[in-house]
Design a protein around this nucleic acid. Structure first.
Lengths: 111, 111
DNA sequence: GAAGCGTATCGTATATCGACGATGACCAAT
DNA sequence: ATTGGTCATCGTCGATATACGATACGCTTC
């Protein structure tokens, strides 16, 4: 656990030099929590959890944000894996990725 | 739950007009998760959990960051309530606020 | 294939984050 | 009082987040 100052020299973008299980774990955790680190994204996740699935348009109507902004938030949620979207004809049906959700809950619970 | 577009007009900084329990809840959640939305802060919390308390200097030695940067992260953790610091002579002794920690865990678990 | 609908992406502006060094504030001990 | 050690704050800078309107994309349907 003891780490020399020199070994810890590199910055945030490249933490590969640190003693690494906990560092990767921290980045993992940070990535997931960051997905929820915005009220709009929290509300989107909440919506999807209540409905098990949801069209993008429905989400937009529930939010005080422009469609493009909601789309961006959805993109972030997709990138972190918390949400997945399936194309359904001309629409997109979003739903929670329960696996990722479980992972997040476990990470937090095991803190 | 149905909300008109006009009622949802205001932006993120002032969501006071929306039907409000869930909005406040979302902001609460976002605030707490945002505190953990950075690898450095996750690592700090992890450190404090392992030690039950920790001098600021020790934290700095464990991190690949400048003292001032660590101090800023600690400030954020203090503002969200996850961490509290007690002045101990010339040093400051940081420890986890278990109450806030419990709240966070409950919020996530109840998602 | 043209039109319409729903969604994604682009371009852009502003605000905030995250990093650092330098400096300031505070306490303890000399 | 001065010095030395610890931590917080300030000023700054580049990078990123967040918001929007405009536009592009993709699928149906006519």
């Amino acid at each position: 656990m003891v780490r020399s100052r020199a070994e810890a020299q590199k910055c945030r973008t490249t933490s590969e030099k640190l003693s690494l299980p906990d560092v990767e774990w921290a980045e993992d955790m940070a990535k997931l929590t960051w997905a929820l680190a915005h009220p709009a994204r929290v509300r989107i996740v909440r919506l999807l959890l209540n409905r098990t699935s949801c069209m993008c348009g429905e989400i937009v109507e529930e939010m005080p944000l422009a469609q493009s902004t909601v789309s961006q938030h959805l993109k972030i949620l997709k990138e972190t894996g918390l949400v997945q979207g399936e194309i359904d004809g001309p629409r997109v049906c979003y739903c929670i990725n329960k696996q990722a959700m479980t992972k997040l809950k476990k990470l937090i619970a095991d803190l």
